[in-house]
Simulated scan of single mutants.
Amino acid sequence: MDVLINVFVGLHIVGIAALLGGFLSQLTAIRGDGARMTPGMLHGALTMLVTGAALVGLNQADDQTVNNVKIGVKLALLIVILGLVYVKRDEEKVEPAVFGAVGALTTVNIFIAVLWT
């Protein structure tokens, strides 16, 4: 079971990297012709959602304790991120505030995962 959990943790990190990497690659475009939500950002957020849900289920099946408040907060942030990326995915230019919110919420989600024990 530990190997399966570790595989899903790795995939979860790949999703985070896709979302945050897409954001960081568009940072210089905010001042110029406008940033946009890339398909990789949407796929990264969806990967985070699916693998996160799988991780909760696998940890509970392995009789490990799961902090449901932490998972709830992370899920709420991810749903907001996913909603923003999904709604703005077809726009040529995204408002800097919306784009910045996606990056900030993603970063907060990472810090919650790492620092909340």
Score class of each variant (00 low, 15 high):
Asp63Pro: 05
Met48Tyr: 04
Gln26Asn: 03
Gly72Leu: 10
Val73Ser: 04
Ala45Pro: 10
Gly52Lys: 11
Pro39Thr: 11
Ala54Cys: 08
Met37Ser: 04
Leu27Pro: 03
Ala61His: 13
Thr28Trp: 07
Met37Arg: 01
Ala18Thr: 01
Arg31Trp: 14
Ala61Trp: 12
Leu75Met: 14
Asn59Trp: 09
Leu58Trp: 02
Ala18Met: 07
Leu78Arg: 03
Phe23Gln: 00
Thr38His: 05
Arg31Gln: 14
Gly57Pro: 04
Asn68Ser: 15
Ile71Glu: 09
Gly44Thr: 09
Met48Thr: 04
Leu78Pro: 07
Ala29Arg: 15
Thr65Lys: 15
Leu46Val: 13
Met37Tyr: 03
Ala54Trp: 02
Leu20Gly: 01
Ala54Met: 10
His43Tyr: 15
Leu24His: 06
Asp62Pro: 04
Val73Lys: 04
Leu55Thr: 00
Asp63Gly: 11
Asp63Asn: 14
Ala76Val: 12
Gly40Lys: 03
Ala35Phe: 07
Ala18His: 00
Val56Asn: 01
Thr47Phe: 06
Ile71Asn: 05
Ala76Cys: 05
Ala18Glu: 00
Gln60Glu: 13
Thr38Cys: 05
Val73Asn: 04
Leu46Asn: 10
Gly44Phe: 11
Val66Ile: 13
Ala53Cys: 15
Arg36Thr: 10
Pro39His: 07
Leu55Trp: 00
Val50Ile: 14
Gln26Leu: 02
Gly72Glu: 10
Gly21Trp: 08
Gln64Phe: 02
Thr28Tyr: 11
Asn59Cys: 09
Ala35Cys: 12
Arg31Lys: 15
Asn68Pro: 05
Gly21Glu: 07
Leu58Asp: 01
Leu58Ala: 06
Ala29Thr: 12
Ala54Gly: 12
Met48Pro: 04
Leu78Gln: 07
Thr65Leu: 14
Lys74Pro: 01
Thr65Met: 14
Gln26Ile: 01
Thr47Ile: 10
Asn59Pro: 07
Thr65Phe: 14
Thr28Val: 08
Thr47Gln: 09
